[in-house]
Simulated assay, not measured.
Amino acid sequence: MDVEKFRLPTPETRLFIVEDCVYKVKLRSRGCSETDSKARSFFEDKKIQEDLKRIILAILTTGAESPAPVQADDIVVYPYKCRWKAADKFNFYVENVPLKICPNVFTLHVEIKNAEKDKNLSDSDSDQPIRLRRAKRRRLVEEEDSDPDNDDGESRNAKRDDSNDDEAREPRAKKTAPESRVYQLFNAVCSMFWSKKRES
Rank of each mutant, 00 (worst) to 15 (best):
D2F: 13
E4R: 08
R7S: 10
T10I: 09
E12R: 02
V18W: 04
D20V: 01
K24L: 10
R28L: 13
R30I: 03
D36S: 09
D36H: 06
S37V: 13
K38A: 15
S41G: 01
S41F: 11
K46Q: 12
K46P: 01
K46R: 13
I48Q: 05
A58K: 14
A64V: 03
E65R: 11
V70C: 08
V70K: 04
Q71S: 13
A72N: 05
I75P: 00
Y78I: 11
P79G: 05
K81A: 02
R83D: 08
W84A: 03
K85Y: 09
K85F: 06
A86Y: 06
F92K: 03
Y93P: 04
V94M: 11
V94N: 14
V94P: 00
N96W: 00
P98M: 06
N104P: 00
F106P: 02
F106N: 02
F106D: 02
T107W: 01
V110W: 01
E111F: 04
K117I: 15
D118N: 08
S122A: 15
S126R: 11
R133T: 10
R138I: 08
R138M: 05
L140C: 06
E142R: 12
E143A: 14
E144W: 13
D147N: 15
D147R: 07
D149G: 15
D151M: 13
G153F: 05
G153E: 01
R156V: 00
N157I: 00
K159E: 12
K159D: 09
D162V: 09
S163R: 12
N164V: 05
D166S: 07
E167Y: 09
E167T: 01
A168D: 11
A168R: 10
R169A: 10
A177D: 02
P178R: 06
S180E: 12
V182T: 12
Y183P: 00
N187V: 14
A188S: 14
A188Y: 04
C190P: 00
M192S: 13
F193E: 07
W194C: 01
K197Y: 15
K197F: 08
R198N: 04
E199R: 10
